[in-house]
């Protein structure tokens, strides 16, 4: 059997190895992505982002556990998890610690957890995170949860990748509006105030609600370059959804599981909304466009790198620093194989 067939048949070792091939940008990895692509598009992608230590991993653990052990009458779903932690900019190494919080998922063949280092990418995800998600999707995981690096910034990348983006806040992080970075409301489909057992949870919730009041719908869809697309008013929506999706605020205590089932209900409601409103198709399109644009950029840069020697690069830079040529001229030289 080929590796691809192995993956489709549920071979976890083949899956794990292929994920590494993709992270390492090997030809085998590229081929796997091509061949697996037709098998993707089935999974529900849930993004979880928020500042360091807000409880992302703990919450992912609980949420995944709930999908695996739903209340009576509900079918359990298989869960893939991709958890990204930062690489050290100095050594290129990383300590990936998200698994520490995901003990409850151990020993369950319906769960696959993969840690990944950001490897120099900014913005909360690694360059190949969406590829790893694609492979887990093809491998048949019904729910895929992506935990971003806890950068505390509004991470647009996750909103482009996930169907539903959860932004986690926690009380006591310098608190109130200052700590709640602008932009978060644009990417959040659901806001979670975790550590609701702590003092200040009500304040954080109130601050978030205040910001939501100010920023009523009309936003959605973070995009690369194009302006934000306007939405057609869709039929058949739930109460309060006529003017677009308003992010609900859910309080949770991830350590005990309080609030996790409400969170799951909101995720389900959001997924339903995406279907009914037509936003799902729209999101998919933006996701694939972003993917294609990113790849295009990456391969153009790689191809350009091959076309130019280190020597030409260096002499051009020297000339620029000596102010013999302008930055614009320098780029013209570099784009033109070293000739002006």
């Amino acid at each position: 059997m080929s590796v691809i067939e192995d993956i489709l048949a549920g071979d976890r070792l083949a899956l794990a190895r292929t994920l590494s091939e993709i992270e390492n940008d090997t030809p085998e990895g590229q081929r796997a992505l091509d061949e697996l692509f037709p098998h993707t598009g089935q999974a529900r992608l849930i993004g979880v982002t928020g500042a360091p230590g807000t409880g992302k991993s703990t919450l992912v653990n609980r949420l995944a556990y709930l999908y695996r052990h739903p209340p009576a009458g509900v079918e359990s779903k298989s869960v893939g998890i991709v958890a990204v932690d930062p690489s050290s900019p100095f050594s290129g190494g990383a300590v990936l610690g998200d698994r520490v919080r995901m003990r409850d998922l151990a020993g369950d063949p319906g769960v696959f957890v993969r840690s990944m280092a950001s490897r120099g990418s900014l913005g909360g995800l690694a360059r190949t995170t969406s590829d790893l998600v694609q492979v887990l999707d093809a491998a048949g995981y019904e729910i895929i949860i992506i935990e971003t690096v806890g950068a505390g910034q509004a991470e647009v990348d996750i909103a482009r990748l996930a169907h539903t983006t959860i932004v986690i806040e926690a009380p006591g992080l310098g608190d109130d509006i200052q700590a709640i970075k602008a932009g978060i409301l644009e990417i959040a489909d659901i806001l979670v105030v975790n550590k609701a057992d702590r003092l200040g949870a009500e304040n954080t919730t109130r601050a978030l609600r205040g910001m939501l009041e100010l920023a009523k719908p009309g936003k959605r869809f973070p995009q690369h370059h194009a302006p934000v697309m306007a939405l057609r008013p869709p039929p058949d929506l739930g109460e309060g959804e006529e003017n677009g999706w308003e992010p609900p605020i859910v309080q949770t205590v991830a350590t005990t599981g309080t609030g996790i089932s409400q969170l799951e209900e909101e995720i389900a409601r959001h997924q339903k909304y995406l279907h009914k409103s037509g936003d799902l198709i729209h999101k998919e399109k933006i996701r694939l466009k972003t993917k294609m644009d990113d790849l295009l950029q990456y391969s153009l840069v790689s191809r350009w790198r091959e076309s130019i020697t280190r020597e030409i690069y260096k002499t051009t830079l020297d000339k620029l620093v000596a102010r013999k040529i302008s930055p614009q001229e320098a780029v013209r030289v570099l784009m033109n194989g070293g000739n002006l």
């Binding site: 690489s87 050290s88 050594s91 190494g93 990383a94 300590v95 990936l96 610690g97 280092a117």
Partner: peptide, 9 residues
């Protein structure tokens, strides 16, 4: 990590 490896803890 400081030696450039990715460590899953």
């Amino acid at each position: 990590r400081d030696a450039g490896m990715e460590v899953i803890y």
